[in-house]
Design a protein around this nucleic acid. Structure first.
Lengths: 343, 343
DNA sequence: AATAAAAATTTACGCGCGTAAAATAATAAT
DNA sequence: ATTATTATTTTACGCGCGTAAATTTTTATT
C-alpha cells in the first residue's frame, strides 16, 4: 500500500510525478485534467493512499462543498425519513450533506445556523420550526448563505419555499370522509408549532363550508413535540366528555391521530369503518408507523419526493449560477389519499 | 455592531488591543487567560462580531474539537432518541458532536467513518450495524481514531463497549411472563442484523430452561430495517398457521412487536392480559411509540442514560489523557421492566 | 518597595492547499 | 512538418491560525 508516509499534496506530487497544481485541479474536479493524466493520478492514488486535507482545502476555497440540512426534530420519524431522502440527493450532486436537528427549539435552530455559518456551506436547506422560529435571525442567516426552505414557510425568508398544498390535501380527505360517512370533526392542538397546522385548520373549515357542513374544531392543550402524548391526553378528555359531535375525527397530523387511537382504545371504543365501530379516525402525513397502528391509519401522503427533489435542485441551481435568485419561488405539491382501516 | 469588517484574528487583535497569540489562547480555552483580559476580549467580541475560522483552526491543531457519533439508522426513533442524548452530553463537554447515520448499510457505515477520518475527530462513538458490519474496516478505523462502541458490540474493536445486559433483561421479562400467565414463545427474525438479537435469543432459551420450561422460537424471514413490516408479515403467517404454542409472545424488540400487534389486530385477535384476550405480546427496548400502541406495549426499558453517559465519559477520558486505554473495557447495564397493557 | 511568579506581547515560522502568471510540453489541426 | 491550441509545470504568494522563544508587562508575595 504505502512505503513512505505521504502527508501532503507536495509529497504526493513527488511520488506520483505530477505537479502539485495539477493535482489540486484534479481534486477539485477530476474531469478538469487530461484523461491520461487522470489515469496516472488515480493509479498513484491506489498505490499510496493519500487524501487532501479538508481543512486546508476549505480554508482556501471561497465556496465549500457542504450543503447544510436542518430539520426541526430528528426524533420525528417523518423528518428522519425526509432527511434521508434529501441527503442522498445532495450526495448524488457531489456535495456533502451536513444534517442538523433543531430538537424542537428555536435556540437550537439558531445555534445550528450559527454552526453552519462557521462552516461556510455552499447552501442550506432548512425546514424551520415554524411559529416559534426566530424569523429575523433566520432571515439574517439566509441573507448571508443561500437558503431554501421546505416543509414550513417563513414569509419572505430564503430563496424559495417548497411544501405541501394543505388546502388541496385537506380538501381531499374531507371530501372522502363526508362521502363515506358522518362529517369529520377536526382534532388539533390549540397553538400548534407548525404553520402547516394553521393552514390545515382553515383548509378544513373551508372544505366543510364548501360542502355545506358546519365545521367543528376540537382543540387540545399542549406544547412541544410530544404529539402522541398530547393527542392521547386531549383525546381521552374529549372522548370522555363527548366533545366529538360526530363519529368521525380528522386529525391535524398522524402523530396526534396515533395518540387519539390509543385514547380510543383505552376507552374501549372500536375504531374503523364498519358498523361495529364507534369512531372513524383519519390523519395527515403518512407517518411511517401509520401503516401499523390498530387499526391502520387512513391518512394523506405528502409528495415528499417532489418536495425534496425541487428543494435540492433549487439550491444547486443557485450555487451553480453563483447568484441569488431575483424572485422568491414558492411551490406547493399535492398530497394523495391513503385509504386504510381507520376511516 | 461593526464598523470595519474584521476578517481575521489579526484584525481583531488591532481593534481589541489584544495580541493575536493571546486571542488564540483565549479561543482555545477562555479560562487560560487572565480574568481581566478575558473581560476585555469578550467586550470587544460583543462590539465587533468576529469568529475564528474553523478551517484554519483545525488545520493547525493536531486535535479537533469534533466527536463523531455514528448510529446504524436514524429513521429508527430508538436511535434518534439516543443520538439526541449523546449529542447533548458531547456539547456539555465542550466538544462538537457530528451525527451520522449508516442508514442500515455497511457501505454507508464505512463511508461515514471515512468522512470522519478526513475530519480528524478527537474521538468517535459508534453504534455499529452488527452482523453486516465490515468488522475489519471498522477495526482499522478504530486503530487510527479513538473509538468507543455502544449498543452493539464488535469483538475486540474499539477502546470500550457499553450496552445492555440482555441476559438480565430477557430473564426479567421471561420471569414476569411465566409468573403471570402462559409461558412465552420467542418471536424474532431468523437472521437478525443486530448482535443483541442473538444474545436475546440465547437469553430466552436459558431463562426458559432455568424455569423448567420448553423454549419455543418462532423465526420469521426478512432482511433490512423494516422491522414492523417483517413483524407484521411474519406475525400474520405465524398466527394463521398457529405457530405460537402458547398465548404469550415475547418479541425480540418493540418494532417487531408493533408489527405483530398489527397482525393480531388484522386477524381479529384481541391482545392484552385479561381473559377476553387471545394473546399476550411483550417487546424489548421501550420504543418511543410503545406507550401508544393498542394496547400499550409491555416491554423492557434499556438504561440508555447510563450507557450514553458512560460512553461519552470514556471517550472524553481517552481524549483528555491523550493515550489509548490499555485494557478494553466492556460494561453491560441492566434493563427494567415496563408493565403496560399488552402482557 | 523590592522581588518572584505569572501572564501578555513581539517576533517569527509553519501548516496544507488554492491559485495566479509565465514558461514549457503535449496534443490537435492545418 | 508547421502552427495553433490546450494542458501541464514552475515559481511564487497568500489564506487564517497554531505555536514556540524571547522579551516585556502585570500581578502576587514578602
Amino acid at each position: 500500500m504505502a512505503e513512505a508516509k505521504i502527508k501532503n499534496m507536495e509529497d504526493f506530487a513527488s511520488v506520483s510525478g505530477i505537479s502539485r497544481p495539477t493535482l489540486s485541479k484534479y481534486f477539485n474536479d477530476p474531469n478538469s485534467v487530461r484523461a491520461t493524466t487522470r489515469a496516472r493520478i488515480e493509479k498513484a492514488l491506489k498505490q499510496h493512499d493519500y487524501r487532501p486535507n479538508i481543512y486546508a482545502i476549505n480554508q482556501n476555497r471561497r465556496q465549500t462543498k457542504t450543503i447544510g440540512l436542518v430539520v426541526p426534530n430528528m426524533t420525528d420519524p417523518f423528518f428522519a425519513g425526509i432527511a434521508r431522502t434529501i441527503e442522498s440527493l445532495i450526495l448524488e450532486a457531489g456535495f456533502n450533506p451536513l444534517l442538523l436537528s433543531s430538537h424542537g427549539g428555536p435556540e437550537q435552530e439558531l445555534a445550528n445556523l450559527e454552526s453552519l455559518r462557521a462552516l461556510k456551506p455552499a447552501g442550506v436547506l432548512l425546514a424551520p420550526l415554524g411559529r416559534v422560529s426566530d424569523t429575523a435571525g433566520v432571515a439574517t442567516f439566509a441573507d448571508e448563505i443561500p437558503t431554501v426552505l421546505f416543509d414550513a414557510n417563513l414569509d419572505g425568508v430564503g430563496e424559495a419555499f417548497f411544501g405541501s398544498d394543505n388546502e388541496q390535501s385537506i380538501g381531499l380527505i374531507v371530501d372522502y370522509l363526508c362521502r363515506s360517512g358522518e362529517v369529520p370533526v377536526f382534532f388539533e392542538m390549540k397553538t400548534p408549532i407548525n404553520p402547516n397546522a394553521y393552514k390545515r385548520r382553515s383548509a378544513y373549515i373551508a372544505a366543510m363550508e364548501r360542502l355545506g357542513h358546519d365545521p367543528k374544531l376540537v382543540q387540545v392543550d399542549g406544547e412541544g413535540w410530544a404529539f402522541e402524548e398530547i393527542g392521547f391526553r386531549g383525546g381521552s378528555a374529549a372522548l370522555t366528555t363527548r366533545q366529538f359531535a360526530t363519529n368521525t375525527v380528522l386529525c391535524s397530523n398522524d402523530r396526534l391521530a396515533i395518540g387519539l387511537l390509543s385514547a380510543a382504545y383505552e376507552n374501549g371504543l372500536r375504531v374503523g369503518q364498519n358498523e361495529s365501530c364507534a369512531l372513524r379516525i383519519a390523519g395527515h402525513d403518512d407517518h411511517p408507523f401509520s401503516k401499523f397502528t390498530c387499526p391502520s391509519l387512513t391518512t394523506i401522503s405528502q409528495d415528499y419526493d417532489s418536495i425534496s427533489a425541487r428543494s435540492v435542485q433549487t439550491i444547486l441551481d443557485i450555487i451553480e449560477q453563483g447568484e441569488r435568485s431575483k424572485a422568491r419561488e414558492s411551490s406547493l405539491f399535492n398530497g394523495s389519499l391513503v385509504l386504510r382501516g381507520s376511516a
